[in-house]
Design a protein around this nucleic acid. Structure first.
Lengths: 71, 71
DNA sequence: TTCACATTCAGACTATAGTCGTCAAACAAT
DNA sequence: ATTGTTTGACGACTATAGTCTGAATGTGAA
């Protein structure tokens, strides 16, 4: 079983691509750093709650739906 | 509108009490520190994803249901 | 090829998640 | 009043979330 961070990273990349955003666009819209988004997608970092909420808002999905896909 | 950390803290306290656990019992079952649980409940800290999952498991609720109550 | 854009990687940095030891406040029970 | 239990609060600490700059690598189109 893959780690939680890795699964979150894959999902994030998938959702971002579905919205047609680059990592940099997502980052600036979230008020986050470009390289940090890259690390999230590669499973090298995991978000805090508020970061999850910021990302979900920009991606137009509910934070809970993201979490649900990780369960 | 109250901050996300504060709302998470209140919810955590409510769920913990509903299960009849002390902060210390919850902490050891989660593999976390007692003082950290105290800080979470007081809204002084916010969890990362994996911490959210650990806590949810011990409380017998789904992580997404916790997040959903914060939206 | 070359140009432009997207992503990875690396290092140094700041902010905060999370630990640990301890003590005091609050609240029960006797 | 005292004993035990729970929680709050504190400072100091370690681990990691998150920033910043820049360079290397990839990708695709002209």
């Amino acid at each position: 079983m893959k780690g939680l961070e890795a699964r979150f990273g894959e999902l994030l990349k998938e959702l971002r691509n579905k919205k047609g955003l680059t990592q940099e666009e997502l980052a600036t819209d979230c008020g986050l750093d470009r390289t940090y988004i890259s690390m999230l997608e590669r499973g090298l970092r995991q978000p805090t709650l508020t970061t999850l909420f910021k990302i979900a808002e920009v991606l137009n999905v509910s934070p809970s739906s993201i979490v649900k896909q990780l369960e």
